[in-house]
Design a protein around this nucleic acid. Structure first.
Length: 621
RNA sequence: GCGGGUGUAGCUCAAUUGGAUAGAGCACCUGACUACGGAUCAGGAGGUUACAGGUUCGACUCCUGUCACCCGUGCCA
């Protein structure tokens, strides 16, 4: 049973409109009023309905009012309720508001389980073997995990996926190099770190890069035999390294024991560090959620043959492509290449195989990709190709999986350019986390000192960890996904404004109230008291709390976690106003209990909402 | 060339998917504490929503055309 007056009113007005204007169909029937002076809710349906029927909108509004049966919820509607061209302003009755809040104060907090429940696969990370995670890897897990938690909160079955770049020539290159260095006794594979792997990766790329351009230039301009010899040596060395890498690739594909063991070592070291970073970020992803490209290696050949056999993939200029010009496949001019003219497969081929697994094996009804906006064309192509090949058709429902790109922009520094260190290097993700937490630690200590509080060092550290991580994640989630955003430590960690720490503070303050209440021997009779909603500040807070369920749902629909951030900030702000204007513990009886109940519900909504976003919380700070 | 994205207060960002006077937070100014955490609250100032047209009762939002910046564009994974 819905408890949100918004959805009840929507039903009532839908019935009323069916009577007033038979056969009419309007989407957004009831909205929350933006200005409290006008009303709590409003119905804007009269205008579009009147237009379609060629009638006067105010007359239509009158007819809707006459047919609306809402007196149990709202103050009586009259012509006074109609404003402007035909807005119907609705004011909730005080008793109905209190009752609605009381019924929301249940385990679900007014979040209705989605019906039907679906299987949602969320792609929330793209780790590459032997590569250090940097700032560019922040948004995908943060946004992806927030979305995954949102789906889970709504009762969907969620499968997180970390698509690991663990296969192909680049991986073979670094594997070959590491084996060579290990043989020469220059490195110890049993103790190697991700940092060292990262260095080896870059070196391997460089040594396999044949600088034929330079050689041609030297010859063309006759720069002398010495320069020519140097270039020839470079090209020769690179060719040798390149061929060695090719050889290693074949060994990997054949699971040659020694080569394979080195590769597995690289994988273990990389994954351990990346999973550790995720744990620190409070991102729920495990090694079991990882699916390497290598796991698709055996599937791709037969899959592409299948696409050829059914005419989905066609030969073109020596390669195999899937054409996507048809509107139902995306209307994309550029075809999707699934096999190169040399017989090799591409990224897109792996992605299609992944879609096939996610739908056919995992039973995904909806596939969500929290990936950099620059990958948009690539994703639209593989979505289209998968649809065309039928791999995205759900085995049970027979319907195509909904495939969506939750695209996001870049993290910029305060200079408005991509976030880098002062020397221009990319910032390691682990370093970013560490610096954020250290700054949080300093801030927590400072404020504790200012208040003259003493806290055990261990607790201070625990709090700083939560505050720092919450600050960092919130600073990311609060922005509209698709846009680039400017990151600033000071702004993210500020205790004022729309920040993670401010929300944690608001919650901690409520928790503190209840600790104090317990100290003063206040019983728990308030738990069954009618929530107090008479004071203006109480009423505004109560109305906001009732919107929680709808807000969570809108995040799932739009894939935009910033809506929940804005909502929680609003709730926290309304609570602060209430806190300022409505003393609670100094009151007695029904007033105190009604307020305590409102406070407790506010805390639960904040805590639940922060949990949906994947932010850690604290009892005190 | 084509395709996609972005452009809103000095700065960082919103705007419930076409609704009423475009809202917050920083910063700035003015107020409020013997209070349950002042890490707060109340108020002020700040705008030609890049530009020009169009659609209609109504446009930051939809359509057309410009401008600026970013990104992507068939054989790298």
């Amino acid at each position: 049973m819905p408890v949100d007056p918004l959805s009840i009113l929507t039903d009532r007005f839908r019935s009323a409109i069916n009577v007033a204007v038979p056969g009419a169909d309007v989407d957004l029937l009831i909205k929350v009023c933006q200005q409290p002076e006008l009303g709590d809710y409003q119905c804007n349906a009269a205008m579009p309905l009147a237009k379609r029927a060629g009638k006067n909108p105010r007359d239509v509004a009158k007819a809707i009012i006459a047919a609306a049966d809402v007196n149990d919820l709202c103050e009586a509607l009259s012509e006074q309720s109609i404003a402007g061209p035909g807005f119907i302003n609705i004011r909730l009755r005080a008793d109905a508001l209190s009752a609605a809040v009381a019924s929301m104060d249940a385990p679900g907090l007014g979040v209705e389980p989605a019906a039907p429940s679906m299987t949602v696969v969320v792609d929330l990370m793209g780790v590459n073997l032997a590569k250090q995670m940097h700032v560019g890897h922040l948004r995908s897990p943060v946004i992806g995990d927030a979305l995954a938690r949102t789906f889970e909160r709504l009762g969907h079955t969620v499968k997180r996926q970390n698509h690991v770049g663990d296969w192909g020539l680049p991986i073979a290159m670094v594997t070959a190099r590491l084996m060579r260095l290990a043989d020469a006794g220059e490195i110890d594979l049993s103790r190697i770190t991700l940092d060292q792997l990262d260095i080896a990766y870059k070196a391997a790329q460089a040594e396999c890069q044949r600088d034929t351009g330079a050689l041609e230039a030297v010859r063309k301009y006759g720069l002398g035999p010495k320069a020519e010899a140097e270039c020839e040596a470079q090209v020769g060395g690179a060719t040798e390294a390149f061929l060695a890498a090719k050889e290693t690739l074949l060994e990997l594909q054949a699971h040659e024991p020694r080569t394979y063991a080195v590769w597995q070592r690289i994988r273990d070291v990389t994954m351990a560090e990346c999973i550790a970073a995720c744990e620190r970020l409070h991102v729920r992803v495990t090694d079991a959620d990882s699916a390497g490209e290598s796991t698709y290696a055996q599937e791709m050949g037969p899959m592409v043959e299948d696409m050829v056999a059914r005419g989905v993939a066609v030969h073109d200029q020596g390669a195999l492509i899937v054409r996507l010009e048809e509107p139902e496949y995306g209307g994309i001019t550029q075809p999707c290449l699934v096999r190169k003219s040399d017989g090799g497969f591409l990224y897109a081929t792996t992605d299609i195989a992944a879609i096939r697994r996610r739908v056919q094996v995992f039973g995904g009804d909806r596939l969500v990709y929290a990936i950099d906006a620059r990958q948009n064309l690539q994703l639209r192509q593989v979505f289209g190709a998968s649809l065309k090949a039928g791999y995205a058709i759900h085995p049970r429902t027979g319907k195509p999986a909904v495939m969506e790109h939750a695209a996001f922009g870049m993290v910029l520094g305060e200079d408005g350019r991509p976030f880098k260190t002062r020397s221009g290097d990319s910032v390691k993700l682990a370093d970013l986390l560490e610096e954020t937490v250290l700054r949080a630690l300093a801030a927590v200590k400072e404020t504790a000192a200012r208040r003259g509080e003493t806290m055990p060092e261990a607790e201070v550290r625990t709090i700083a960890e939560a505050v720092g991580i919450a600050a960092l994640k919130y600073a990311d989630l609060v922005n509209d996904r698709i846009k680039d955003y400017v990151f600033s430590f000071d702004r993210a960690l500020a205790f004022e404004g729309n920040t993670g720490p401010y929300l944690l503070y608001a919650l901690a303050r409520i928790k503190s109230m209840f600790r104090k209440a317990a100290e003063r021997g206040v019983g728990d009779g308030w738990k069954s008291a009618p929530p107090s909603t008479r004071h203006h500040a109480e009423k505004q807070l109560a109305l906001a709390l009732l919107r929680y369920g709808a807000t969570v749902r809108s995040v799932a629909d739009s894939l935009e976690p910033h809506r929940l951030c804005q909502y929680l900030f609003e709730v926290a702000g309304l609570f602060s106003t209430f806190y300022d204007q409505c003393p609670t513990l100094s009151e007695e009886g029904a007033v105190r209990d009604g307020r305590l109940r409102l406070c407790a519900l506010t805390a639960r909504v904040l805590e639940d909402g922060l949990g949906v976003l994947g932010l850690p919380t604290v009892e005190r700070m």
